[in-house]
């Protein structure tokens, strides 16, 4: 992937620390995500990747440090926090589509209730987004009637419907059957090429190589290494990263 965006920072994490009880899940995290950047976070399980991702829209609170989004410190609660979240899309490992709503309703709920867009307009835009991720024909079905790959594409459309400034992907393909991974990755690669700012926690090295501007390697709650995908995969600097790569790239 070539250089994306205008390089002004969208998200800045400054000395962020977080504990789950006695477990120190995020240790002195300093990280800047630029507009238009596609950042891939990889690393062993329990290394704090998902937690890091979830702190950015404050689904997880932090104990110390600061996070600024678009120049503003993260809101703590209430309407300002809801507004922040409406500007940061999120795609979950387990899709989390609203089970009692149709596919189209899943996509239009946010625009109608949060943005106050008229229903007809939201539905028109929702259908466009569903067509774009290849689910247009399923708009009136319920989430449980769709395959995992389809559900995850709907989840991406739901995030896009809010016109977010960035999208967080928390292991978007980890719960999918292998044959459905690519259809989701294809949608994500398309977004990356259009310049969407993305933070992607994933184990998909192919995606990282094709779409990422930068790879961050996390282990034991720390950012151990960050580099371009090419450099990272071919010439990792730290033993911890080399060890991790040797385990996942050999098979």
């Amino acid at each position: 992937m070539t250089e994306n965006g205008d390089k002004t920072p969208l998200v800045v994490l400054d000395d962020v620390n977080k504990h789950f009880g006695s477990l120190h899940v995020l240790r002195d995290i300093n990280l800047t995500i630029s507009r238009g950047e596609v950042l891939v976070v990889i690393g062993p399980s329990g290394g704090g990747k998902s937690t890091l991702c979830r702190t950015i829209n404050r689904l997880e609170t932090i104990d110390q440090g600061t996070i600024t989004f678009d120049g503003q410190p993260l809101a703590v609660e209430g309407k300002t926090l809801a507004k922040l979240r409406s500007e940061v899309g999120m795609v979950f490992q387990s899709f989390n589509l609203f089970a009692h709503k149709t596919i189209l309703e899943n996509v239009t709920l946010g625009p109608i209730k949060v943005r106050g867009i008229a229903k007809a307009e939201a539905e028109k835009r929702g259908m466009e987004l569903l067509e774009r991720v290849g689910i247009g024909a399923q708009a009136s079905k319920y989430p449980a009637q769709l395959s995992g790959g389809q559900q995850q594409r709907v989840a991406i459309a739901r995030a896009l419907a809010m016109d977010p400034k960035m999208i967080l992907f928390d292991e978007p393909t980890s719960a999918l059957d292998p044959e459905m991974v690519q259809e989701v990755l294809d949608v994500m690669i398309g977004l990356a090429q259009e310049g969407m700012t993305m933070m992607v926690v994933t184990h998909e090295m192919g995606f990282a190589r094709r779409a990422a501007n930068r790879v961050v390697f996390m282990a034991e709650g720390q950012i151990v290494e960050e580099n371009t995908p090419e450099e990272f995969f071919t010439n990792a600097q730290t033993d911890r990263a080399k060890d991790f790569l040797s385990k996942i790239l050999t098979h």
């Binding site: 689904l59 809801a82 409406s86 989390n96 949060v114 809010m162």
Partner: peptide, 9 residues
């Protein structure tokens, strides 16, 4: 979480 993530209070 998904509801909060799209900005619902």
């Amino acid at each position: 979480e998904a509801a909060r993530a799209i900005g619902l209070t």
